[in-house]
Simulated scan of single mutants.
Amino acid sequence: MATKAKRETHAAAKSKAIAKAKAIAPDVPVRIGQTPETDLRGLPDVFGRLIEDHDRHRALLSMIEATDGKGEDRAALFEELVYELKAHAAAEEQALWSTVLRNPETTEFARHAVAEHKDIDKMLDDLTARDMGKKKWMERFADLKHEYLHHIREEEQEQFVESEKILSDADRKYMRTVFERRKKEEKAAAELKPKLKIKAIA
């Protein structure tokens, strides 16, 4: 019974996240496939909230892949993805990793996650600077998708699991409150920052 209830909680949390992505472009299909197994999905704490965002991001990545470069949907979805990933990373660092960094048992996990945030941020800025109607843009986007899916898989299956061990229930609930507040503020301040990773040769 408990397992069935857990499955239902997980499914509801994932559906809620996907619905938020679908609201940006209702006619674009979502195909996120299987997601990594985690007992943290749907929990009323910071980890459940972070994974809800991850599922939303998986949906946005899938939807962008399904778009035509000449249509408005790709631009709208990519803009939302940029704002989402930048705000999520900043709020996650402030709500979770700032605390986890201070514990010697989890310092390396936190450092690794934060370093990957910086790499992903640079990839987003590079894509923002390029013509999304070109085939090469989609190739670079595929690299971003691969990198981000790898990053959140590591977070969900390794870094969150280790962090969970050193945090109390009260810590985790408080961190969710911090994350919610900071994410809203960070998303309102987020910008599209076109910056090529490698200078184009004329």
Rank of each mutant, 00 (worst) to 15 (best):
R153Y: 10
E162W: 13
D45W: 03
Q157F: 06
T3S: 05
E186F: 07
H88S: 00
L127A: 04
A21F: 07
I152F: 14
E180G: 09
G71P: 08
R111G: 02
D126Y: 05
A76L: 11
D125E: 14
D143R: 05
M63G: 01
K193R: 08
V28E: 06
R111P: 05
A113K: 08
H10V: 04
D143S: 10
H150G: 08
P194R: 05
R130Y: 05
E156N: 12
E158M: 09
T177G: 15
M132I: 14
M1Q: 12
A189Q: 09
L127I: 00
T67C: 13
K183Y: 10
V30Y: 02
E108Y: 14
D27H: 13
L127S: 02
K70F: 07
Q34R: 15
T106S: 03
L192I: 08
D143L: 10
F47Y: 09
K122E: 14
E52F: 15
I201P: 01
V82W: 00
P104W: 15
K173C: 13
M1A: 13
A5C: 04
D53W: 07
K173D: 11
R31W: 14
T9I: 06
A19R: 10
D27K: 15
D55Q: 15
D55H: 15
W97L: 03
W137C: 03
L101M: 12
K173M: 11
Q34G: 13
T106G: 00
E72Y: 09
E180P: 11
E186T: 07
G48Q: 04
S168Y: 05
L127W: 00
T177I: 14
L81G: 00
K136W: 06
L144A: 12
S168Q: 06
G48S: 03
D53M: 08
I166K: 10
V178I: 13
R31P: 09
H150T: 10
S15I: 00
K136N: 07
K136Q: 12
T35K: 06
K184S: 07
S163L: 12
K122H: 05
K14C: 00
H151A: 01
E191A: 08
G69I: 05
E93K: 08
A142G: 06
H10C: 09
V114K: 03
A5D: 11
E147T: 12
S168A: 11
E108W: 14
K16Y: 11
A90Y: 02
F141E: 02
E156W: 06
V30F: 01
R140Q: 09
Q159A: 10
A142V: 10
D45Q: 05
G48F: 03
K118M: 07
I24A: 05
A91W: 06
D119N: 08
T99Q: 12
A110N: 03
E92S: 01
E8R: 09
E52S: 04
R74S: 03
K183I: 05
L50T: 08
F179P: 01
K184E: 06
K16I: 00
A5F: 14
K187T: 02
L40T: 05
K22A: 08
I120C: 01
R56M: 04
G33D: 02
K20A: 07
E84Q: 12
E80S: 15
E84Y: 03
D126F: 04
A189S: 06
